[in-house]
Amino acid sequence: MLKIAVIIGSTRPGRNGEAVGRWVYEQAKKRSDAQFELVDVKDFNLPLLDEPVPTSMHQYTQEHTKKWSEKISGFDGFVFVTPEYNHATTGALKNALDYLYTEWNNKAAGFVGYGSMGGARAIENLRLIMGELQVADVRAAVYLSLFTDFENFSVFKPLPNREAELNTMLDQLVAWAEALKAIRT
């Protein structure tokens, strides 16, 4: 069965990402077409990239890199949960992506963004990064507004239509993850 990680990309204290990530995970767990796991970048304590050799060479020296590599290697696809900071994804998520290369290759990704503009620019930023990492990103995404999907900008209360949007994205993600599995084997 396909394994898909729901990756929380914010490490900020008081973040909304944990609530959003848990919502994505709880909705995804209702599906029978893949196994989902919640992965929090915060749990890996990755300093700014500190590997002396380019990650594409897969010669890791740091224990935190080896642990991160082991976690990511086992997945067929990813749902990246990202806030939008200054028209981009978080530095923490970008750093976590930069730590690895081959572990991301020939897998699929979907996105759930949140912010004043639904995290749209953070998602577009991630789409550029995915191309370089050889990750196929799906068209459908979930764009959560701080104005309509959060109470007082901090209590996550998604609009009723968000579940259908999430399932559309997950349908595409599972299809692409399954197709790309053949390339990796």
Rank of each mutant, 00 (worst) to 15 (best):
S32C: 05
D33I: 01
Q35N: 15
Q35F: 11
Q35H: 08
F36R: 05
E37F: 12
E37Y: 11
E37N: 09
K42E: 11
F44P: 05
F44I: 06
F44R: 12
N45C: 14
L46N: 09
L48H: 13
L49W: 11
D50F: 06
E51L: 07
E51K: 05
P52S: 02
P52F: 04
P52C: 00
P52T: 08
V53M: 07
V53T: 08
V53D: 11
P54K: 01
T55R: 15
T55G: 15
T55N: 11
T55D: 08
S56C: 11
S56F: 15
M57Y: 13
M57G: 01
M57W: 13
Y60S: 11
T61F: 09
Q62H: 12
Q62M: 10
Q62I: 03
E63Y: 00
E63D: 13
K66H: 06
W68V: 07
W68E: 09
S69T: 11
E70I: 03
E70T: 14
I72L: 10
G74L: 04
G74R: 15
F75S: 05
D76K: 06
G77D: 05
F80P: 01
T82K: 02
P83L: 02
E84S: 05
N86C: 04
H87I: 05
T89D: 05
T89R: 07
T89V: 07
T89S: 12
A92S: 11
A92D: 13
A92L: 04
A92H: 06
L93A: 05
A96V: 04
A96I: 01
L97Y: 04
L97S: 02
L97P: 00
L97D: 00
D98Y: 05
Y99L: 06
Y99E: 03
Y101N: 12
Y101Q: 13
T102S: 14
E103S: 09
E103I: 11
N106H: 13
A108D: 06
V112C: 07
V112G: 01
Y114Q: 02
G115L: 03
S116K: 09
S116Y: 14
G118T: 08
G118R: 00
G119Y: 00
A120D: 02
A120T: 13
A122C: 06
A122K: 02
I123M: 04
E124V: 08
R127S: 07
L128Y: 09
I129Q: 04
M130H: 13
E132A: 09
L133K: 10
Q134A: 15
Q134I: 14
V135D: 01
V135R: 00
D137P: 03
V138W: 03
V138N: 00
A140D: 12
V142P: 01
V142E: 01
V142Q: 03
V142T: 04
L144K: 01
S145Y: 04
S145P: 05
S145G: 10
L146Y: 05
L146Q: 08
F147A: 15
F147Q: 10
T148P: 02
T148E: 13
D149S: 04
D149P: 06
E151T: 08
N152F: 09
S154M: 13
S154V: 14
S154F: 11
S154T: 15
V155F: 04
V155Y: 08
F156W: 07
K157P: 06
P158C: 05
P158L: 07
P160S: 09
N161L: 15
N161C: 09
R162H: 03
R162Y: 01
A164V: 13
A164K: 09
